[in-house]
Computed example of a mutant assay.
Amino acid sequence: MSRAATTLILIAVAALAGIAAHWIGLPLPYLLGPLSVTALIATGLPTTLPAGYAFPNWLRMIFIAIIGLMIGARVTPELFVNAERLVASLLALIAFVGIALAWNYVIFRHLGGYDRATAFYSSTPGGLYESLAMGEDAGADMPRLILQQFLRVIVVVTVLPIALSLWLGAPVGSAGGMTLARASVPLEALPVILVAGAIGIVAGKVLRLPAGQLTGPMAVAAALSLTSLMPLDIPQWLVNVAQIIVGTALGMRFIGLSRALILRGLGLSLASVGGMLIVAVAFAALLAPVTGEHFDVMLISFAPGGVTEMALVALSLHANPAFVTLHHIVRILITVIGLALSARHLRRTL
């Protein structure tokens, strides 16, 4: 079977899994459903895939850009009305990243027994792709590093929306029917969306932005929204397709990983994420009176998970998703800047 045919079949199977996950009521169904089924294929049926198969990176990049546009379109001037309160919570993220990194290093180094490079780069609470790239340069065990970084995101975006749903007594996020997209957008808007996404991808690469394929398009959409030049509306069907593609690409990252390794990594990830969420709860409780935001809004602003799902949960709580998204982007920036500053030293000592 050709690689192109394999990709098309995987996307079709992933789409069916997304529909099923939506019917069941899972949070972020069109991401987690495809991710789950393709991860099962990658680990349980690897011989059905062509030798050396990898999901096309260019395809994943296009649809990550769509998600970036969707988030950026929600950035409005109202987000910066209480700038002084916003600064307090953004500064607190520096402390959060440091504490989370230290906690995770203890888990992966001493409980997991990982070597120093693998433990350190597995510990970062953000900057997934940057952590993988720098970890590879530092000689980290890449299968374990990939596993732990992806499990961090998966565990947070699965556990937190479910926990909040139980606490609030009603579904939140995409399980509650929330979306950052528009249901009815004319097809004539697609060329504008594609051009904005392409400009964003190029800008992300040229400016070397962290997670540039996401943050570049997000910055373009935010600029268009803030200036009212051409606010973008992203149709819901396109967002669903984007999540299916991204979920499929993530699931294929598990090719070559044994079930035993995955189960052990999941146990370590639960300990890691559990500790980070406890820290996030503490910061949320401290900052809620300072920022004037509700405790649950601050909690999802600090939770080290997926940008998209946390923004969807924010909609369920009648909060501005751009407020939540900004915190997550800053968390990623702080993490990546910290990695960049320490990379040379780490290469000498790890």
Rank of each mutant, 00 (worst) to 15 (best):
T325A: 15
R347Q: 14
A340V: 08
P321Y: 11
L346V: 08
H318V: 02
P321T: 06
R331L: 14
P321K: 07
V330S: 10
L346Q: 13
N320E: 15
R344P: 01
L333H: 03
A322W: 08
S342C: 03
H345Q: 14
T335E: 00
L339N: 04
A319T: 00
A319I: 02
L341Y: 12
A340M: 12
V336S: 06
H345W: 15
L339G: 05
A322K: 01
T335M: 05
T325H: 00
F323V: 06
A319L: 03
R344G: 14
G338W: 10
H327I: 13
V330M: 14
R347I: 05
P321G: 08
V324N: 11
R331Q: 11
V330L: 14
V336C: 07
H345T: 12
R331M: 13
V336A: 09
I329S: 02
H318Y: 00
V324F: 08
T325G: 14
P321N: 10
H318A: 02
L326H: 10
T325I: 02
T325V: 06
A322I: 07
A322V: 04
G338H: 06
L341A: 13
I332H: 00
A340L: 14
N320A: 13
L333I: 15
L341G: 00
F323P: 01
N320W: 00
T335Q: 02
A340D: 07
I332Y: 00
I334N: 01
A322M: 07
T335C: 13
H327Y: 08
N320C: 00
R347S: 09
P321M: 05
I337R: 03
T335S: 12
H318L: 01
T325M: 12
L339V: 08
A340H: 08
V336E: 08
L333M: 14
L333Q: 04
N320F: 03
V330W: 09
H345N: 04
P321R: 09
F323C: 01
T325Q: 01
S342E: 06
S342A: 14
G338Y: 10
T325L: 04
A319W: 05
L326I: 15
L326F: 14
T325F: 09
S342N: 09
L339T: 03
P321L: 10
L339M: 15
P321D: 11
L341T: 00
I334V: 15
T335L: 02
R331T: 08
L339I: 13
L346T: 09
H327V: 12
F323A: 05
H327Q: 13
P321C: 04
H328M: 06
I332C: 02
L341F: 14
L339W: 06
R344C: 07
A343Y: 06
T335P: 01
H328Y: 06
A343C: 00
I334H: 03
F323Q: 10
F323T: 11
T325S: 15
A343D: 05
I334M: 02
R344W: 05
S342R: 12
F323D: 13
S342F: 09
A343Q: 09
I337K: 01
V324Y: 11
R331H: 07
T335Y: 02
L341H: 03
H327P: 11
A340G: 00
H327A: 07
I337P: 04
L339E: 03
L339R: 00
H345F: 13
A340W: 11
V330K: 03
L341C: 07
V324K: 04
L333Y: 13
A343R: 15
V330E: 12
R344L: 06
S342P: 02
A340S: 09
R344D: 11
